[in-house]
Amino acid sequence: MKKYEYTDKKDTRSGFGAGIAELGRSNPNVIALTADLAGSLKLETFIKEYPERFVQCGIAEANMIGVSAGLTIGGKIPFATTFANFATGRVYDQIRQSVAYSNKNVKICASHAGLTLGEDGATHQILEDLGMMKMLPNMTVINPCDYNQTKAATIAIAEHDGPVYLRFGRPVIPVFTPADQQFEIGKAWHVNEGDAVSIFCTGHLVWEAIKAGEILSEQGIEADIVNIHTIKPLDEEAILASVRKTGCAVSAEEHMLNGGLGDSVAQVLARHFPAPLEYVGVHDTFGESGTPDQLMQKYGLTADKIVEQVKKVMARK
């Protein structure tokens, strides 16, 4: 197992904040919008440096999506920011008609996704957002895994012409990807070479997959770990290349199993290379209040759970 080390722990939302601050300096068309969550989305630097390109919409997410669509008509690149729940479920029809169907260059940037939002509970812990967004034609869906990858992804989506959903989170987690990386939309990142089992992971579960890979390696099982940061368009080639080598796979994500990364992987395997697949994710249930760590334990989004699923899937080969 390739060794991954970290010297720092940061939240992915701060990676977004750093990325958009950099975009503010490099791209005069970038506009940041928020619905009363500028602090939570780490927009302070952007606002301080470019107050005229910051649009405070107040607690009115539907309007923020429409205003963003309108801004693109004037050649702007709006980054509409709020919590993932309010950025998707609350405004699905606005995104569908004014952004996706109209194919507008709007970047929907969503923090506090998933269970790791923590104590606020299920009203705010959206676990369906990737599914909703990936179903929309024209929409690109990205779920980065640490501070550096989130920053790089934020910068990369400004160069992509079309609607994007960028999902990140609140908890402080290890920073283990390189600071100077180039983010390529739709191109999976090969975390570790192995031949026993494929692990397809995204977002906060990538670090858990690395920890699982270390546990497995000590037991003589070398996992092929692939980070699928872009849920759509899916890197089908990377998925197939890995499973052709390993013959079985586990998906790992902080999302509902229905509609998540695992669903996408299953579709690819069913069509092109049927092979056993097990899932790590949330099983058709809402979350609840608790600390992020407690919730990840309770809902089985951990390295240990990945190891367990690996054993299960390998037995089915």
Binding site: M64, G66, V67, G70, L71, T72, I73, G74
Partner: peptide, 9 residues
């Protein structure tokens, strides 16, 4: 909302 965005731009 869309018109607001276009006017803002």
């Amino acid at each position: 909302s869309v018109a607001c965005g276009a006017a803002y731009a």
